[in-house]
Amino acid sequence: MNTPRLFLLTDDFLPHQGGSRVYYHELLSRLEGVDCRVLTRQQEGDAAFDERQVYQVERMGLSAWEFLKPLRMQFLPIYVRLLWRTIRTIRRFKPTVLVAGELVPTGPVAALCARWFRIPLVVFTHAEGPPTIGRTRFQSRLARWACGQARWVIAASDNAQDGLVRWLGVPVEKIEVVLPGVSEEHFEERFRARPGQKMDEITLLSVSRLIERKGHRTVLEALPELIRDFPGMRYVVVGTGPLENELRALAHDLGVASQVRFAGKVDALGLMAAYAAADCFVLPNMDNAETGDTEGFGIVFGEAAAHGVPVVGGRAGGTTHSIRDGETGFRVDGANVKAVADAVRRIFRNGGLYARTYGEAGRQMAEREFHWSGRAKRFKQIVFPG
């Protein structure tokens, strides 16, 4: 029996930060008996990352031509280069299934190649994809056509599925939902958190890119009020991004800089240690009204739950999957400073007893629902039903 071969074409991939990049990496790493290959753009530090993987990664340079922007054709070279490299890889690799990691630009390129080479096509999307693309006529047409050519359209959350139906008119019966999961190391007992045990040294934690919709600004603005109630509270921010300097300045202006630590990018062991030391995970995510960007699932909420850390997240996007409101933590309006502060206070009621209760409930939920092995098994059953 021939080994099935899966070819993923994606615009972005690890080691670049982001939930969708982790999603694809974790699925491919667990597809037993499947030969997987990835074609994606070059990233800083990609060579060291690629050589450690069980699947093969091919890289290419992708950049727009800004001088074509007045003609609205600046992305044309990206499509052309994607098409050329995809054709070349298909001829060499001879995949059983072709997978597009995004609705655009990889969706239409993969759809075209799938027709030429008569290969079954899978198109993936996350929650931010449909509303962002659906706002532009040209891209929405390309995305609709790609989804129409696909044998399966896979959404990474119910929210993403709703977006496909609402913004792009994809028939719901054509969509399969495969939720993200949590890596096994997050469940290791040595990294299990003990929230609320030291009420005089409470640690709040955020893990994400430093961009506006993640809600770091709201947490910082809530800190002065929270520190009055919990003088030993500190806030650890893991991740990098374009808002870092602005957030550092805000912490200084609010008078809380001494109790905020920007940890930057950390390695896997450092991330485990950060979760294990946390008393509450806080990331009040919100929608980006201008672009439609939102939280697809919130893998970091699932990771925090796996460590036994209670969470405070935003109501936006697909966080209903990763946060059980009032059970493992709270979902609040990510732009409302008072709502975030009140949610944190509720977690630390009764001398930390609630923090431990919410944390344990999150741990049990993660054990039941968030293992990547189960997600990969479901994906394989969809794509390789035989």
Rank of each mutant, 00 (worst) to 15 (best):
M1W: 04
M1I: 02
N2E: 11
N2Q: 05
P4K: 01
F7Q: 12
T10P: 08
F13C: 08
P15C: 09
R21F: 08
Y23S: 08
S29H: 09
R30W: 03
L31Q: 06
R37D: 03
V38Y: 10
R41T: 10
R41G: 14
Q42G: 02
Q43A: 15
Q43M: 12
Q43W: 10
G45D: 04
E51I: 15
G61V: 11
L62H: 09
W65L: 05
F75R: 11
L76Y: 13
P77I: 08
P77F: 12
R85E: 15
T89R: 10
F93Q: 04
F93E: 02
P95K: 07
P95D: 05
T96W: 07
V99S: 12
A100W: 03
T106W: 07
P108F: 00
L112I: 02
C113R: 14
R115S: 11
W116V: 09
F117L: 07
L121M: 06
V122S: 07
T132Q: 14
R135C: 08
R137C: 04
Q139V: 06
S140D: 01
W145F: 03
C147V: 13
G148C: 04
Q149S: 13
Q149I: 13
A155L: 15
A155M: 13
A156I: 15
N159I: 04
A160M: 05
Q161L: 14
V165T: 11
R166K: 07
R166S: 14
L168C: 13
L168A: 10
V172D: 06
I175W: 03
V177D: 00
V178P: 09
V178F: 10
L179Y: 02
L179P: 01
L179F: 07
L179C: 08
G181E: 04
F187K: 09
R190Y: 00
R194Y: 12
K198H: 09
M199D: 01
I202A: 09
L205K: 07
V207F: 02
R209L: 09
R209K: 12
L210A: 01
E212Y: 12
K214A: 00
H216E: 13
E221V: 05
A222S: 00
L223N: 00
I227R: 13
R228L: 05
P231D: 01
P231E: 01
R234C: 10
V237I: 05
P242C: 13
E244Y: 12
E246L: 10
L247D: 07
L247P: 13
L250K: 12
D253P: 04
V256R: 12
S258G: 11
Q259M: 09
K265S: 15
L271I: 13
M272S: 12
M272T: 01
A278W: 14
C280W: 13
V282E: 04
P284T: 03
N285C: 10
M286Y: 05
F297T: 15
V300F: 05
V312D: 03
G313M: 08
T319L: 11
T319K: 02
A335T: 09
N336C: 12
N336H: 12
A341R: 05
V344P: 00
I347P: 06
G352V: 06
L353Y: 06
Y354L: 07
R356A: 15
T357R: 07
E360C: 01
M365V: 00
E367T: 12
R368C: 10
E369L: 12
E369V: 06
F370H: 06
F370V: 06
A376Q: 11
A376W: 10
K377T: 15
Q381I: 02
F384P: 01
G386E: 02
